[in-house]
Amino acid sequence: MAFNNKTILLSILFFVSLCVANGVPPETICGSTVDPTYCKNVFANQNGNIYDYGRISIRKSLSQSRKFMTSIDSYLQGGSSLSQLTIRALEDCRFLADLSFEYLSNTYATTNQSNNVLPTSQAEDFETFLSAVLTNQQTCLDSLDTIASDQRVKNDLSSSLFDDIKLHSVTLALFKKGWVPENKIRTSWPQNGRHLNFKNGCLPLKMSNSVRAIYDSARQHGRKLLQTNGGEDSVLVSDIVVVSQDGSGNFTTINDAIAAAPNNTVANDGYFFIFITEGVYQEYISIPKNKKYLMMVGEGINQTIITGDHNVVDGNMRLFANL
């Protein structure tokens, strides 16, 4: 049988198209992940391009996140025999798992519609979400480590978490490879809802004269971290409240100040600034999902201290801002 150049060329193009359609094996994709061996097991008998693998991984992460919440709920529903320490650890993990499921759901909703890199700012947002999922998993593990009496609960959930952390790590790696621009360079923190720009070690704030007057009267120490020069790149502050245990501020507890923040604000509204004066605040801080764009600043290292028995293993959290 004779073949002319056109026939050969068409055959080559067909072969290339077939390869692109079929994608690549897991070995090719998993090289960019932290644990390639685990990654290849996740995608056994799969084939596709980076976006196919990424979406599969996100779906698996979503499924595992849902299963983990179900496991926690089953323990909490039958928790009459559990210690208070165990119940608190489970409640912490349930709250974090709910956040993680929301982050993964939002990520999947976007990536399921895209076979290309996302705009840089959007890619950074979802990369932050997926990183937060890993942080939430580790925080839950830390909380479970405090359990002494209910070892079965601890061992069961910890084992699940270790596996899930591996899976979520794969999800993050593939998201970065598929949807994050290669030339993306993170140069700053989120500003006005996106990135907070520290200049010369200071965070410039833009606020009205009335808000600035409250801020200046509340702080007692020289400002090193924050400045209120109101420049073009300054972070907009919409309102300010002061938390002070002696009753001289707007609130005596941090949670009351959080409750006073407006609901579901947007970036252009600016930040709701909560200034926390010197003291030891014995509170379990919980920020509802509808309280967006909050900025909490303490009075200085070892001056504003939040202490409680949830989430943090040693029961203490410090706000290190020197003002």
Rank of each mutant, 00 (worst) to 15 (best):
V242L: 00
G48M: 06
T304H: 11
L323T: 15
L130Y: 08
G279P: 05
N155T: 13
R88M: 04
S63A: 10
N200E: 10
T135K: 06
Q227F: 10
F126K: 13
V180R: 09
H168M: 14
N229A: 05
I12R: 12
L236S: 02
D256V: 00
I285M: 02
T86R: 01
Q138H: 12
N264V: 04
N106Y: 11
A218G: 06
N255C: 12
P204D: 05
P25V: 07
L62H: 12
P262D: 05
C30A: 08
F14K: 15
G79P: 01
T111D: 05
N116W: 11
T110P: 00
N268F: 01
A321S: 15
V312T: 15
I258S: 02
D145Q: 14
V170H: 07
P190M: 08
L96H: 07
F251N: 02
V211L: 00
L18S: 11
V16W: 01
F43M: 00
P119E: 08
Y38V: 12
T265P: 00
Y53R: 05
K199S: 13
T128E: 12
D216C: 03
S17G: 14
Q227T: 15
C39N: 08
V237S: 06
L134P: 01
N311S: 07
V24R: 05
S61V: 14
A213S: 11
W179N: 04
K176M: 15
G222F: 12
G308V: 02
